[in-house]
C-alpha cells in the first residue's frame, strides 16, 4: 500500500508542472493589458510603461515564469494589483473557510446519501424507495440559490433556529461555528447527496445480487454485517468516483453559497479578482483550486486501492 501511495504521488509531479504552465499562461489568455487597467483610464503612455516595468510585465515570459514559480514555491504568490495585500494572505484567510464549508457539505451529503441509498436498495420498489427517489430527483433539480433562500426563510426567519448569515471560526467557538455553517453546508451538499444516493442505491442493488452476498448470508453473518461489510465495500467504488467529481464541484458551488450566506470564504476573493482582472490573485486561487482537485483525485485513487485489491500494484 505504501508503494502504491508513493507511485501515485510521483505521478502528480509532472501534472503539477503542467498546471503551473497553464496557470501562469492565464496572463496571456486574458484580454486587455493589466498595466493599462492598473494605471487607470487617464494614464499617459509613460505612466503605463512605468507600471509595466514595476510589475515586471516587460520582461521575457520565461524569466517572469521562473520568478513566479520560485516565489510561489516559497509561499509568495505575489501581491494583489489593487488591494496591495499579499495574495497568500488573502488565500490563507479565505481557504480554511471555504474548505470547512465544502468539507461539511460533503459530510452532510454522505450522512444523507448513505442511509437513504441502503434503505431504498433493501426496500426496493416500496413507498420508502419511491419517496427517496422523488427526493433525490428534487435534490438534483432544485438550484442551490433557491434552496439556500428557502432554508434561510424556514430555519432562520420563521423558526429562528439558526443564524441567516455570517461565519465564526471553529477555533473561536465550535458551537457557533456549527450553527453558522449548517445551513450553507446543507445548501451546498444537498445536490451531491441526491446524486450520491442515486449512484449508491444502484450499485448496492447490483452487489446484492452477487453470489458472495449469498455466501455471506450462508455463513450466518448478521444482516448488519452482510450489508455494512460485504455489500458496502464493493458498492462504494462508484460512489468514490462520484465523490471525487463532487469535491471540485463543491469548490465552485461554494462561491455562490458563500454569497448567499455572507460567508467570508475564497469565493468572495475570487469574484473580486475576476471582475477587476487582478491577475496574481486569480493565479493564486486557480493554483490552490487545482491543488485541491489533484489532492482529492489522489485520495480517490488511494481509496480505490483500499476498496479494490486488484488495482494495487504487487
Amino acid at each position: 500500500m505504501l508503494k502504491f501511495f508513493l507511485t501515485r504521488l510521483a505521478t502528480t509531479v509532472p501534472v503539477l508542472l503542467l498546471v503551473t504552465f497553464v496557470v501562469f499562461g492565464l496572463v496571456l489568455l486574458i484580454p486587455g493589458d493589466p498595466a493599462v487597467t492598473i494605471a487607470g483610464p487617464e494614464a499617459t503612455v509613460e505612466q503605463v510603461a512605468a507600471v509595466r516595468e514595476r510589475l515586471g510585465l516587460d520582461r521575457p515570459m520565461v524569466v517572469q515564469y521562473w520568478d513566479w514559480i520560485t516565489s510561489a514555491l516559497s509561499g509568495d504568490l505575489g501581491t494583489s494589483l489593487f488591494t496591495s495585500r499579499p495574495v497568500a494572505t488573502s488565500i490563507g484567510d479565505g481557504l480554511p473557510v471555504t474548505l470547512a464549508l465544502a468539507g461539511s457539505a460533503l459530510v452532510i451529503s454522505l450522512v444523507i446519501a448513505v442511509p437513504t441509498a441502503i434503505v431504498s436498495a433493501l426496500r426496493r420498489g416500496t413507498w420508502l424507495d419511491r419517496i427517496s427517489s422523488i427526493g433525490s430527483s428534487l435534490g438534483i433539480a432544485l438550484p442551490s440559490f433557491w434552496l439556500g433562500l428557502m432554508f434561510v426563510l424556514l430555519f432562520s426567519l420563521t423558526l429562528g433556529w439558526l443564524p441567516a448569515t455570517g461565519y465564526v471560526a471553529i477555533e473561536d467557538d465550535p458551537g457557533a461555528w456549527f450553527s453558522h455553517i449548517l445551513l450553507p453546508a446543507l445548501t451546498l451538499g444537498i445536490a451531491g447527496a441526491a446524486e450520491s444516493a442515486r449512484q449508491l442505491r444502484g450499485s448496492i442493488i447490483g452487489v446484492l445480487q452477487q453470489d458472495y452476498v449469498r455466501t455471506a448470508r450462508a455463513k450466518g453473518l448478521r444482516g448488519r454485517m452482510v450489508i455494512g461489510k460485504h455489500v458496502m465495500k464493493n458498492a462504494s467504488v462508484p460512489l468514490v468516483t462520484v465523490l471525487g467529481l463532487q469535491i471540485t464541484a463543491l469548490l465552485g458551488g461554494a462561491v455562490l453559497v458563500e454569497q448567499i450566506f455572507g460567508v467570508p470564504g475564497l469565493g468572495q476573493v475570487a469574484l473580486n479578482a475576476v471582475t477587476t482582472r487582478d491577475i496574481p490573485v486569480i493565479q493564486g486561487i486557480v493554483l490552490v483550486a487545482v491543488l485541491v482537485a489533484m489532492l482529492s483525485n489522489l485520495l480517490v485513487d488511494l481509496t480505490y486501492g483500499y476498496l479494490n485489491p486488484k488495482v494495487r500494484p504487487r
Binding site: 452477487q210 453470489d211 458472495y212 449469498r214 455466501t215 455471506a216 450462508a218 461489510k229 460485504h230 465495500k233 464493493n234 476498496l307 479494490n308 485489491p309 486488484k310
Partner: peptide, 12 residues
C-alpha cells in the same frame, strides 16, 4: 456453492 469464482468476496 457452484461458482467458486464469484462466491468469494473480491474485496477481502
Amino acid at each position: 456453492f457452484q461458482e467458486p469464482m464469484s462466491s468469494l468476496n473480491p474485496a477481502f
